[in-house]
Simulated scan of single mutants.
Amino acid sequence: MSDDLKHTPLFDLHAELGAKMVPFAGYAMPVQYPLGVMKEHLHTRARAGLFDVSHMGQVILRGADVAAAFETMVPVDVAGLAEGRQRYGFFTNDKGGIEDDLMFANRGDHLFVVVNAACKEADVALMRAALEPGVTVEVIEDRALLALQGPEAEDVLAGLNPAAREMRFMDVATLELVGADCWVSRSGYTGEDGYEISVPTDAVEALARALLAHEAVEPIGLGARDSLRLEAGLCLYGHDLTPDVTPVAGALTWAIQKIRRAGGDRAGGFPGADVILAQLSGGAAMRRVNLRPEGRAPMREGVQIFADETSDTPIGYVTSGAFGPTVEGPIAMGYVSWDLAEPDQRLYGEVRGKRLPVTVLAAPAFKSRYKK
């Protein structure tokens, strides 16, 4: 790998654990460990998996009107988010497209924002241009980020601090773990119950080792992270979401609260509002859907989708595709014409010159198990 790649604070631990490292978003990241992608995926579904996500961007926003200011960048309800709670959101552009998706938390006197690794420099520049000088944009450089996911995650983390049991999905709290103040949210990117933990860099290895010492926990790489999120119907920015995709086309209208929609008390006021608000009532040309290819052949990113076996014009395309170990078959996500995005719609993906049947799912292949 290139010497230009950045390392997370756990790089040496990954090497010690036998990880295969690959370039990802400018970092050397573990794609898998000796257990292998398939078993890592199934272990996370059955017990608990530990992910290093320190490549993500962590940002603190402070200011007297920080919630109102942040609402000028995102089409979601920031001002109404209770202290100690977290919400999903996205930056939009003037055409209504998604510049990045993100998580933000109300920490009382500030907002804590986590953005995608590949977009973090652009996101920080975007926030500084839109929010300063009224809001300070502080990039956190001295903290790492871990994710503990799976049905036994609660028992594992509660072994280090019993207060972890009291948290519910999208709660945030400061918990002392291995002697360090950690910013913990009950959330994740796998469809499983679990936690995301912002930890001081000088304590992250001690915390990772403490979690891995539990017999329920295995280290999990990017390979299983991708198949886990795809089974759960969770988007990967740069693939399933792009600056050309609106939240309506991206099937993310659930994340736009009523108060930010037409007729709401704080409707509009964000980039691309005219496009997005119009699409909320009238629809878009395409829509993101979860797909289940028939048979065993996976449909990877870029596969064209057709309405039938003989038509010449594609009506959609695959943006993510893989084998789903939990569902024991291929899974995919992509975009199809709005009128063909209904559940149980039978379509065809062209794989190596053959039209293979694929069905639009009413819900993701795996039903998420969050603790609400």
Results as ranks from 00 to 15, higher is better:
Tyr195Cys: 10
Tyr195Thr: 12
Tyr195Met: 01
Tyr195Ser: 04
Ile197Glu: 13
Ile197Lys: 10
Ile197Pro: 09
Ile197Arg: 09
Ile197Ser: 12
Ser198Val: 05
Ser198Met: 14
Ser198Asn: 06
Val199Lys: 03
Val199Asn: 07
Pro200Phe: 04
Thr201Ala: 14
Thr201Met: 06
Thr201Tyr: 00
Thr201Ile: 08
Thr201Ser: 14
Asp202Met: 08
Asp202Ser: 02
Asp202Ala: 04
Asp202Leu: 06
Asp202Gln: 05
Ala203Gln: 02
Ala203Asp: 09
Ala203Asn: 02
Val204Asn: 00
Val204Lys: 01
Val204Cys: 01
Glu205Val: 01
Glu205Gly: 03
Glu205Met: 04
Glu205Ser: 00
Glu205Ile: 00
Ala206His: 04
Ala206Cys: 03
Ala206Asn: 06
Ala206Tyr: 04
Ala206Gln: 14
Leu207Arg: 05
Ala208Leu: 01
Ala208Asp: 02
Ala208Phe: 07
Ala208Arg: 01
Arg209Thr: 05
Arg209Ala: 06
Arg209Ser: 12
Arg209Asn: 03
Arg209Leu: 02
Ala210Arg: 12
Ala210Ser: 14
Leu211Trp: 03
Leu211Cys: 11
Leu211Phe: 14
Leu212Thr: 12
Leu212Asp: 09
Leu212Phe: 03
Leu212Asn: 09
Leu212Met: 08
Leu212Trp: 10
Leu212Ile: 06
Ala213Gln: 12
Ala213Leu: 06
Ala213Gly: 11
Ala213Asn: 13
Ala213Asp: 15
Ala213Pro: 09
Ala213Lys: 09
Ala213Phe: 08
His214Glu: 13
His214Tyr: 03
His214Val: 01
His214Leu: 00
His214Thr: 05
Glu215Pro: 04
Glu215Met: 01
Glu215Leu: 00
Glu215His: 04
Glu215Ala: 10
Ala216Asn: 07
Val217Asn: 07
Val217Trp: 11
Val217Tyr: 05
Val217Ala: 09
Glu218Lys: 15
Glu218His: 14
Glu218Ala: 15
Glu218Asn: 13
Glu218Gln: 15
Glu218Gly: 04
Glu218Ile: 14
Glu218Phe: 11
Pro219Gly: 12
Pro219Lys: 14
Ile220Asp: 03
Ile220Arg: 04
Ile220Gln: 05
Ile220Trp: 00
Ile220His: 05
Gly221Glu: 03
Gly221Ala: 12
Gly221Leu: 05
Gly221Lys: 06
Gly221Ile: 02
Leu222Ile: 12
Leu222Cys: 01
Leu222Ser: 10
Leu222Gln: 14
Gly223Lys: 10
Gly223Arg: 10
Gly223Glu: 10
Gly223Trp: 11
Ala224Asn: 05
Ala224Asp: 03
Ala224Lys: 08
Ala224Thr: 09
Ala224Cys: 07
Ala224Trp: 07
Arg225Cys: 08
Arg225Asn: 00
Arg225Ser: 12
Asp226Asn: 15
Asp226Gln: 14
Asp226Pro: 02
Asp226Gly: 09
Asp226Leu: 13
Asp226Thr: 15
Ser227Asn: 11
Ser227Met: 11
Ser227Lys: 09
Ser227Pro: 08
Leu228Gln: 07
Leu228Phe: 11
Arg229Asn: 01
Arg229Pro: 02
Arg229Gly: 07
Arg229Met: 07
Arg229Phe: 06
Leu230Gln: 11
Leu230Glu: 08
Glu231Asp: 13
Glu231Ser: 15
Glu231Val: 13
Glu231Ile: 08
Gly233Met: 12
Gly233Glu: 08
Gly233Leu: 11
Gly233Tyr: 06
Gly233Trp: 08
Gly233Ala: 14
